[in-house]
Design a protein around this nucleic acid. Structure first.
Lengths: 191, 191
DNA sequence: GATATATTTGAATAAATGTTCAGTGAAATA
DNA sequence: TATTTCACTGAACATTTATTCAAATATATC
């Protein structure tokens, strides 16, 4: 048996799950509240019992995306380059077992890029800034000699954009084979 | 002095240019005909004198994107790996001098990914399939020993997704520094 | 069991937005 | 110059879609 509170929470989660699916596959603007309601097996009116508006639902998902990007920190690694290998391997493993992870990449990317995103939501999405967080680790790697010479920010950017591109494709193409983490780390690895 | 035909053609190009800008920055669904009209300094009604519908305008842009992907072919290179270096360098140089190039990456990616894209337009967008075109060149490189071992399609995929990720970021962030072509080719280069 | 509270519906409402169109004036053509 | 053609406008129209709400049903509380 299920208490009302539990039931409500479950319904809420169902909506969130369906909304993520649709926001990712069609984009936020093209996703209708009725689409979400239909896929979640409920009336359109009920949607507003759970979420004040379409925008608030979106905001909730963006907040989840931000929190989900809990940065794994600089685990103990002998070399800076190991950090990136571990990070990438962990990310790919996570994406394989939880397809939702790749979907969040698409969600957050759209929220960040699109000028149609409500400003306050865009600000939340913008807080995800892995590129800058990578910079000090790359500098460390350059001192060690395990990473390429060059502007650390540019290296970080190249590496992260590559991950982003792969995650985005994987989100809608889960049958594709993910590359070896090592291949990608070669972008920044010193030869 | 300008003939009517020339004037009409110029207007058409203005609309196309503005529409590309907006479809990229806001997404197709979130871009209103009135937005385009305003930015192109004309009444909304006039838009329909030049394009039958918002969808037809979109289709036109997607067709342009498809044609613009005129594949440079296998230029004469000593090694397969050189092809990828040349290709990437050429692409980045082109993106720098013609910002519109990166924008088309975003446009085509959205059209391909989004389930909100009208089916016949999606089909056009799907014709761009560089990943498969790269496969034989990668196989050649593997025979030569200049490229990594592994499934050619997976390598091609990793490389292309990386380019895609970089182009997408560059489209809305043109102040960012593009990486060395060599860095990216290291994804597929044998060590 | 009676009452109160919460969930759910579906139709009504309101706002946004793609599209049409009758009319205006400028440019081409005769 | 007179006539026709065409670019152009902006208001009207039609459709779509987010949101509201009164009523109905189910669940909890006493």
């Amino acid at each position: 048996m299920e208490t009302r509170k539990e039931q409500k929470e479950r319904r809420r989660q169902e909506i969130i799950q369906v909304a993520l699916e649709l926001f990712v596959s069609k984009g936020y603007a093209a996703t209708k509240i009725t689409d979400i309601a239909k896929r979640a097996n409920m009336s359109t009116g009920l949607m507003f019992h759970y979420f004040e508006s379409k925008e608030k639902l979106y905001e909730e998902l963006i907040r989840m995306g931000l929190e989900g990007t809990a940065y794994p920190g600089e685990q103990k690694c002998e070399h800076a380059i190991d950090f990136f290998v571990n990070f990438t391997e962990a990310l790919f493993a996570y994406m394989k077992e939880q397809p939702v992870v790749a979907k969040f990449f698409v969600l957050m990317a759209e929220a960040q890029r699109s000028e149609a995103t409500p400003e306050h939501i865009r600000e939340i999405a913008m807080k995800v800034n892995v590129i800058e967080q990578f910079v000090p680790i790359i500098e460390w790697g350059q001192q060690e000699g395990t990473m390429k010479e060059g502007e650390p920010l540019t290296l970080s950017n190249a590496f992260w954009c590559s991950l982003q591109g792969i995650a985005e494709r994987y989100a809608t193409n889960p049958e594709m084979e993910l590359p070896d983490a090592e291949w990608l780390v070669d972008i920044i690895r010193r030869k």
